[in-house]
């Protein structure tokens, strides 16, 4: 069974994430409590508008510690777009807010002179140790990004006015700056590889 629990981050495109996972045979539920996040076979932390408001929402639901903990013990977890950024400590987008602090690297805005938001399809190149991500085209919609690889993580690269970290993976944890649910067949294959881990780890 591919049982997946989605963290309700008050989100913009949860419907697309649910549709993509459902097409791949997953049964998707919404997390109602920290207990749900702790015990879920697979957890998805979807992308939302802003770093600060997403963190507020997670903390007000009391889910922050449970998300951090399951990542520490390597339970299958997928973070998408702002969801990936939430794993960091801080973001330039919301200077007062504190993230989930899974790693210390911070999130910064793309430099001047670029089209921002980066909106559209860009190349993703997996780095050493990547097991989930393959080389291909992914759909991005972001103004902020992480540009240094955190210790202990395998990273993928993408270029938008300089290289940034477009995906992070460690064990059964996958974080994508792009939207796999909107990245066509390439994205579907990536989600399928992660869902296989959800099945195996269950």
């Amino acid at each position: 069974m591919r049982l997946v629990t989605i963290v309700p981050t008050g989100t913009a495109n949860t419907a697309s994430v649910v549709a993509a996972l459902t097409r791949l045979g997953a049964l998707v539920e919404e997390a109602a409590s920290a207990g749900d996040v702790e015990t879920a076979q697979g957890v998805v932390l979807p992308g939302v508008g802003a770093f600060g408001s997403a963190m507020d929402r997670i903390e007000s639901l009391g889910l922050g510690a449970a998300i951090r903990e399951r990542i520490e013990v390597n339970r299958p977890t997928l973070a998408v777009c702002v969801g990936m950024q939430l794993l960091s400590r801080h973001s330039e987008e919301s200077p007062g807010a504190t993230g989930l602090k899974v790693f210390e690297e911070t999130v910064g805005r793309f430099g001047d002179g670029l089209t921002v938001p980066q909106m559209g399809w860009n190349r993703v190149e997996p780095g050493p140790g990547s097991r989930f991500v393959e080389s291909g085209w992914a759909y991005f919609a972001n103004s902020y990004r992480i540009d240094r690889l955190p210790d202990g993580w395998a990273g993928s690269n993408t270029d938008h006015g300089g290289k940034f970290v477009s995906a992070l993976e460690k064990g059964d944890v996958l974080a994508c700056q792009f939207h796999p649910e909107l990245s066509g067949e390439w994205g579907a294959r990536l989600l399928d590889r992660w869902l296989q881990r959800v099945e195996t780890a269950a």
């Binding site: 495109n13 419907a15 097409r23 759909y139 939207h179 909107l182 990245s183 066509g184 994205g187 579907a188």
Partner: peptide, 26 residues
């Protein structure tokens, strides 16, 4: 559809936008 979907027409409030997003717009 597994690519992005933008939807417009008659959006007058954030709630209108929310309904479209909930239905599956990105």
């Amino acid at each position: 559809l597994s690519i992005p979907l933008a939807v417009g027409g008659g959006v007058k409030s954030p709630d209108d936008a929310g309904r479209l997003l909930e239905a599956g717009a990105d």
